[in-house]
Amino acid sequence: MISIKNVSKWYGAFQVLKDCSTEIQKGEVVVVCGPSGSGKSTLIKCVNALEPFQQGDIVVNGISVADAKTNLPRLRARVGMVFQHFELFPHMTITENLTIAQTKVLGRSKEEATQKGLKLLDRVGLKAHADKYPGQLSGGQQQRVAIARALSMDPICMLFDEPTSALDPEMINEVLDVMVELAHEGMTMMVVTHEMGFARKVAHRVIFMDQGRIVEDAKKEEFFGTPRSERAQLFLSKILHH
């Protein structure tokens, strides 16, 4: 579904990504973790071409992201993305947030888009808030709307960049619950997170990054059992003791 092949990226002279390669199969849930600044966000943004890269290639559902002929908006429309800071559109109501891309990008009718949007809103438990503006919701609620917004495009896979790290602790679980449910339904997911409870519960694989490199790429059981690299061991011992 997503195959990342020898991707390298530079910001000027600074190399953020160093020869990163991995495969994510259909229905697989892969958690990406690693210290701050290791390039996790950069890597996940390369997958839907929000960030360009200079070397290597990423193929999503058979379509090359690096190919200049690829219609990137069309590709992105089918790849859902959830951001650390939600990024709902503050000048639109929740319903408008859920329908704008459906109508303008996918060309769905207003009725169809609204119906779909409200169904997803109900699914994340926020039907009562349809006519509010994002600023009137809590962080956890906004992030659930953001997930519903991504789902409204019928994505073939979902990318999450630290979806819970900007939330107050008491709101983390309501968002993780939605993500766990998605994983159980068989959604293909690439999730940057330090929530190891989530990783243990639903991840198939864990990728550990350090200084722009994929240092570990292992089945969940192996990763939590005996990570091979010292860096990963140290990292795990740090975050698991929190």
Partner: peptide, 18 residues
């Protein structure tokens, strides 16, 4: 306007103009 808003719009498949 925060950069993240542009990223979110692109991530939903919008073109530059949209």
């Amino acid at each position: 306007v925060p950069k993240g808003q542009v990223a979110a719009a692109y991530a939903l498949g919008m073109t530059y103009g949209q």
